[in-house]
């Protein structure tokens, strides 16, 4: 066990790479998901269908297959650049995250009750304004938790980047295992690292949820003493 921890500088370096990749792909997937979801909800049928196909096309082969293809096969096509392992990894995982995230964003928006947009229409509020002020703030209370669990998954996705030679914490741990033959310690350490990273990510998103307007309203309702009225809220919030 002691032998393993003598390697702490390389392990720390690997951990740093893992965190770096995870942060990049999570932050990159966010705008990607919003754009794809917007296309998915377009009023033009052709755009809707095309974006749905694109999303399924990205999700269908798993990230590993996409990663190997982007790293080994893509540069062989004429005019395509040779990607460094890190760039290929970030690119593929961001794309995958955007595709999964798009469905979360779309479902969140579609879950906002139809009556809300009807009410905006009756008040003469324009479509853009009603999306910005009414639909999105309510959809966020479903999108943020969904994105939180996606982000936790995405941290776990980063484990596959070691396949193409990115020196993340898994790559380094395998190296340490080869040096020390202390498999048990190395993998327990590795498991703990990933577990802590995903837990931290979960906490971050939990904190973010507290700031959302609809959740503020829910808390206010819970704080007020009239218990039966909470039922009214869940009805109105649907």
């Amino acid at each position: 066990m002691k032998a393993v921890f003598e390697y702490w500088p390389v392990l720390a370096q690997g951990l740093w790479v893992t965190i770096w990749v995870a942060v990049c792909i999570i932050l990159g997937a966010l705008p990607g998901a919003v754009v794809l979801a917007a296309l998915r909800l377009s009023e033009t049928r052709a755009i809707r269908v095309a974006s749905m196909l694109l999303i399924e096309l990205i999700r269908a082969p798993s990230a590993v297959v996409l990663l190997f293809w982007a790293f080994y096969a893509l540069p062989l096509l004429p005019g395509m650049p040779r990607l460094s392992p890190l760039v290929a990894a970030i690119l593929v995982l961001t794309l995958d995250g955007a595709a999964y995230g798009a469905e979360i964003v779309r479902a969140g928006i579609e879950a906002v009750h139809r009556g809300q947009t009807d009410a905006c229409h009756a008040l003469g509020v324009s479509k853009i304004q009603s999306f910005r002020k009414v639909v999105l703030p309510q959809a966020l209370s479903q999108i943020v938790p969904g994105f939180g669990s996606l982000a936790r998954s995405m941290i776990k996705w980063t484990a596959i980047v070691s396949f193409i030679g990115v020196q993340d914490v898994l790559y380094v741990a395998n190296y340490v295992r080869g040096q020390t033959f202390d498999t048990l310690t190395v993998f327990c350490f590795l498991g703990a690292i990933y577990w802590i990273l995903t837990a931290l990510c979960g906490l971050t998103f939990r904190a973010l949820e507290q700031l959302l307007p609809l959740n503020r309203a829910l808390r206010a309702a819970r704080a007020s003493a009239h218990a039966p009225e909470i039922e009214v809220l869940t009805g109105a919030a649907q």
């Binding site: 009556g115 309510q138 109105a236």
Partner: peptide, 20 residues
Amino acid sequence: FNLFPHLTVLQNLILAPTTV
């Protein structure tokens, strides 16, 4: 009713006058 559940009563009432 279709009130906006994430806005206070006052915010519900001024949303349309301010934006429209």
